[in-house]
Design a protein around this nucleic acid. Structure first.
Length: 122
DNA sequence: TAAATGACTTAGG
DNA sequence: CCCTAAGCCATTT
């Protein structure tokens, strides 16, 4: 299974009102240190259905700047709408909102299936 | 096959 | 809290 696919599947497991960092997802996907590559996955992923992309933020608890100027604003708005609180300086407490998955929630990463062309996000 | 790219991170000032 | 400098890395060029 590709790194990209693993990351996308992980993002889908992030509960509403919780967040995960790029580095965290990379590690869960089995590629610790690939935070940057993780960001690339989201940047190059558009209009994927059922993909809560807004729940992925950086290690500082802040939404990353990137893409057009509106994206960060939308991201924060979406998160606040589901309960995530941001401080005046634009940071949220990871200690409180970070998603911490149980091992049995990641079984799907063990699939040795070949990856179909693209979004085989089952 | 080598070089360039960032929705990243961490360590220091 | 803001900013910089360096690593890091799967993808893209």
């Amino acid at each position: 299974m590709s790194f990209r696919l693993r990351v996308l599947r992980l993002v889908r497991r992030i509960p509403r009102g919780r967040v995960a960092t790029y580095g965290q997802l990379a590690a869960l996907a089995g590629h610790p240190g690939a935070a940057r590559a993780c960001g690339r996955v989201l940047r190059t992923t558009h209009d994927e259905p059922e993909l809560p992309w807004q729940r992925v933020i950086n290690s500082q608890g802040r939404v990353s700047t990137g893409g057009d100027a509106q994206r960060p604003l939308l991201q924060r708005t979406l998160l606040e709408a589901e309960g995530v609180v941001f401080s005046r300086s634009g940071r949220c407490a990871l200690k409180r909102f970070r998603w911490e998955p149980q091992e049995d929630e990641l079984c799907f990463l063990d699939d040795e299936e070949d990856e179909e062309d693209e979004d085989d996000l089952a």
